[in-house]
Design a protein around this nucleic acid. Structure first.
Lengths: 120, 120
DNA sequence: TGACTGGTTAACCATACAGGAATATACTTC
DNA sequence: GAAGTATATTCCTGTATGGTTAACCAGTCA
């Protein structure tokens, strides 16, 4: 049995999760999963506008999920929290499983309907 | 290399994370990690007020993270998503590690200061 | 039926925050 | 230093949501 989570952790945990609770930020993180990227590159890969990406990157940096490096005019960001990929992977897998279950259920329904139809 | 996350997943993933992005909900889930609980029990264990707990439980149920069972006057909830515990555990561990690092750093600073002090 | 208990919902307020547009900053180059 | 490029910030608006209180069910029991 896992030791119970201490009260003081709840806020910290919530904040980590909050960072991942937005599709745009997830898109940004996905882009960074492939490696270090300049802001412009992230903008291109995510299709979000620049101000937006910049703001989200700032949040992520402040939360310690990404690291910032400036080089001339450009600013490069990269993942800086091993947790991110693991969390995303886990959730991603679950979504696939859930989708699979839904499809299985639908398939069964459909098959049942076909059988019934044939009997008529 | 993990297959890249499809666009259609981002919203679903964000929603999962959003459910975990609130300290009250985490407290509720923590309470349910010990087993099935009535609303009143959850209220007692979390210290949140009843209306509040009820609303959060509803959200969690709609998101499929908990299951609801009614028995007479009482309503019992229990975890219904194997993901929850794993995600919480992961995040929890990271927080511990981060706290450890901070403490190590502080200890080093303090030791350095002590040495300096002694030399004076 | 009426009182009581456990849960839910509604109405409200305050806050956070995502997105867009415009502006500002930082650095490079000419 | 003027112009240009890559980022950051500010201002604004709409929306979501957390918390609280009070009202509202739904069962139980007398």
């Amino acid at each position: 049995m896992a030791a119970t989570i201490p009260d003081e952790f709840l806020d910290l945990m919530a904040e980590k999760f909050r960072m991942l609770a937005d599709p745009s930020r997830l898109a940004i993180l996905r882009s960074l999963m492939a490696g270090e990227r300049s802001v412009t590159q992230v903008v291109e890969e995510t299709g979000r506008n620049q101000a937006n990406v910049s703001k989200h990157l700032k949040m992520l940096a402040e939360a310690g999920l990404v690291a910032r490096r400036k080089e001339g005019l450009q600013v490069f960001y990269k993942l800086d929290d091993p947790l991110v990929e693991r969390l995303c992977k886990l959730v991603c897998e679950t979504i696939v499983e859930e989708a699979q279950e839904v499809m299985d259920r639908q398939k069964k329904l459909l098959d049942g309907w076909r059988v019934k139809k044939r009997k008529e």
